[in-house]
Design a protein around this nucleic acid. Structure first.
Lengths: 210, 210
DNA sequence: GTCTATAAATCGATAGAC
DNA sequence: GTCTATCGATTTATAGAC
């Protein structure tokens, strides 16, 4: 390992790495790992191809670094679900934060989507390890809420899947969504989606009166 | 154009093309257009690389042919929603057929998912043309049902998006779903998903008593 | 129709000057 | 640290024998 990655970084080095990571995120999120080229990343980052390699060692290393550095942010809304909060409010907040992330971080959403779609060769261990642990923990919380009658009886794991699916759909398949809706502006689209999802989950999750 | 595609096909030619298309579907659905190689397709199809090219002209042509030939099947459940049927039953049937397609045709689901995720360069016109037309038509039907009080008041376009998202999630992100659930067998997973989705959409769509 | 051999292009990564 | 030039590997597609 002779790349700059393994040593202490100066401010300028950190900034350069950040520029490269942003350019790489643009490329990878649209074309995938194989489809994106070092050349395209270098041009967008405003430096030469060897210079990009100099900072990360390889194209693969940039991709892996992106995935790892974004994972915590990506999972934070789920992590923040609190057992002490109001059940319906906690879940609605989670849904809304995930939807807002689809609006504000569509590239990150697509990056994870392609990675998992292609079999998660770099993230497989993390999925069945840390992610499973986190989801199981929150699923337990939701189960308890259901058992206490504070939430409709519902399979907590599949509920979490449904939230992932519905919110990330607006980022991952935005081309299709916008084509079908006739290219609405961003604000209108996500405002409608927020209203829809809120209403949808309230109906599905409000405990039925006994 | 000198490939066999442009001429009338014998039975043997059709069968060979079908073998190639199946091998290509395996490769493209896992690795995407760029990630899949002609070599891998040829090996799996049991013939040489030039032979594969001989039958379709190019790797791109195989990919495009796959997308086009699968589109009708892929949209048929939506097309079959009948304005004459019972509203809730029609939509639940749609949800279940889409979920069954995720179980039985995961490769096709992933093929469309990667295509749209990467910006739908080959399908863009079809999305804002035929697909938009079909979705708008069915959205009108759902709107009428809502207006007549036979279904909850709900945004029909976003309802259709939510059905796409939740059902296709089980095919497109199956690696993640299985990792989080601890690798359940196929039958159990989709049986649970069916029960969850049925219950979920019944709650969300049943008209509220006035 | 089907193959082997290979051309042609692309792309990730390295060498070496400054 | 940063560049130009280029290597070497991969990969799509073609040439040409059978």
């Amino acid at each position: 390992m002779t790349d700059v990655q393994t040593r202490k970084l100066t401010r300028i080095q950190r900034e350069k790495r950040e520029v490269i990571l942003q350019a790489a995120l643009n490329a990878f999120s649209v074309h995938g790992l194989r489809g994106a080229t070092l050349e395209k990343i270098a041009v967008e980052a405003g430096m030469s191809k060897p210079h990009v390699v100099y900072y990360f060692g390889s194209k693969d290393a940039i991709y892996t670094e992106l995935l790892e550095s974004l994972l915590e942010i990506w999972l934070s809304p789920l992590r923040d679900i609190s057992p002490q909060g109001d059940p319906l409010a906690e879940i609605l907040t989670y849904v809304r934060r995930k939807l807002r992330m689809s609006q504000e971080m569509p590239r990150e959403s697509k990056l994870f989507a392609t990675e998992i779609l292609h079999g998660a060769p770099r993230t497989g261990a993390s999925l069945s390890g840390d992610l499973k642990e986190l989801v199981d923990e929150k699923a337990d919380v939701i189960s308890r809420w259901s058992a206490e009658g504070r939430l409709a009886r519902i399979d907590p794991h599949h509920l979490i899947f449904s939230i992932w699916a519905m919110t990330q759909h607006y980022a991952d398949f935005d081309v299709q969504v916008r084509a079908v809706l006739g290219a609405p502006d961003d604000a209108a689209l996500f405002s409608d989606a927020d209203a829809f999802l809120t209403d949808f989950f309230v109906r599905a999750l409000r405990p039925t009166a006994t």
